[in-house]
Nucleic acid binder design. Structure first.
Lengths: 242, 242
DNA sequence: GCGATCGTGTTCTATATTCGAACACACCGT
DNA sequence: ACGGTGTGTTCGAATATAGAACACGATCGC
């Protein structure tokens, strides 16, 4: 080992185990990529030598978390879903039917986001079957809570002092408005040209979440959409016993 | 390190990286447990010293795959769901509404299993809202393909020579029947007293899966249930473009 | 009050484990 | 043939890991 093996990894996070951390980052890379990756590509994105990625991937494969395509490329395996199935399943099972209804009613992509640390992660997303402009909001995507309607809706559930430092004045104002009326909006925040409306939601274990829609053009008044989302949130909350 | 560090792990699997393998096994342990575990308990089940489990858990926690309860116990975190969200989400999104319909129609727990190596894993499960005797089939649970209706249904999709060695004559006969008529049954196989009916299903990437119901008493004739499940399977297949 | 038990979190050294270069080989386009 | 790209294996160096030992706080029973 030449040198410079000083656990750089993620700047802020001084993890405990380098090997495990790298293995997890491989999973994150594959989840992000959304398509099979070659081992070389994984090694490149991970910033390590090929043989390291190779061994790590073999271990992941042994556990079924990673599968190999016929051409040798690797991708997340079915067992990955099985591992996580227990975590948020009750939530998804109850939320998806409601989201589907709302998505079809409104003709917009409708999704559920949950707060994890300082990030919003999309847990479930449904596109309308016959939507006008179907905007994909793929599950697993993350953005900082500080941007987007779901983030603002989620923040509106918590007292102002707890809001993250990185929240600028304009967004702070938005969150205050969201708290007053019960729903948040965003324009051009996450993706240029897209608008979003979100309603906050509190889960049984106390996690903060939000149901939201994204759309390009707005066939319905904001308040109508918000009202519909509020019903969705209420349905989910009562279904899972919030 | 005293001695006996000979990569025992799983008897058959000679993994590459011990550290990563142990980290993954922690995830498996937590997924199995279905409840927060103390670090000591994790170490015990993993068969390693506490300090090892501690460091591994800290790394997992740094990545958000594991969260700590107020009392210090650990559990799978929301990011775990986010990581896996991309894997089988399209499947779940399409399957859950269908499963819900069928579950409510039949008044039985209705679920989707997928084949992973030699095991059946439950990916999604829905219990009827007003079912007579609601039988929980929790997502993430696994059993060998050789037992249970879903396993037999899945095996019926493949030629006989590919069937696992461990399949006894009685079950072989069951699978042959399943192939003929398109659905499989089981009695007292996975859980005593429970009956199950399953219909096989092939996913876009070629994975083999099955939709099934479990029930205690049978208010409907088997063939009716099978017909209903076949419709569910067809709906899912067409929805995801099988 | 006191000791036993169970838990978390930290420090430390030997060494097993991991790292990462180097090599062998296969495939593809030019 | 040649360079480019990718997989899979070998191997020595030394780092990162393993696991004991320790310190400490709760919580129990007595």
């Amino acid at each position: 080992m030449t040198q410079a093996r000083s656990r750089e990894g993620t700047p802020g996070g001084s993890a405990g185990s380098q090997t495990l951390s790298r293995g997890i980052r491989i999973l994150e890379i594959l989840a992000d990529a959304r398509e099979p990756l070659s081992i070389d590509e994984v090694a490149r994105r991970l910033g390590v030598h090929r043989s390291i990625a190779y061994r790590l991937l073999r271990t992941l494969e042994d556990h079924g978390l990673v599968v190999r395509e016929a051409d040798g490329r690797v991708d997340l395996g079915a067992r990955m879903a099985a591992l996580a199935a227990g975590v948020a399943h009750d939530l998804q099972a109850e939320a998806l039917p409601e989201l589907t209804q709302a998505a079809n009613d409104l003709g917009m992509t409708c999704f559920l986001s949950i707060l994890d640390r300082e990030e919003c992660i999309t847990l479930a997303s449904v596109e309308p079957r016959h939507g006008v402009a179907s905007v994909a909001q793929r599950p697993g995507t993350r953005h900082p809570v500080t941007v987007g309607a779901p983030g603002k809706a989620i923040l509106s559930l918590a007292p102002e002092p707890s809001w993250p430092e990185g929240l600028d004045d304009a967004h702070r104002a938005d969150v205050r408005v969201a708290r007053e009326r019960g729903w948040a909006t965003s324009h051009d925040e996450v993706i240029a040209g897209l608008r979003s409306i979100a309603v906050p939601l509190r889960l049984p274990k106390g996690e903060r979440a939000a149901v939201a829609v994204v759309y390009l053009s707005d066939p319905h008044p904001d308040a109508d959409i918000a009202a519909r989302l509020t019903r969705v949130a209420a349905a989910i909350t009562s279904a899972i016993g919030g």
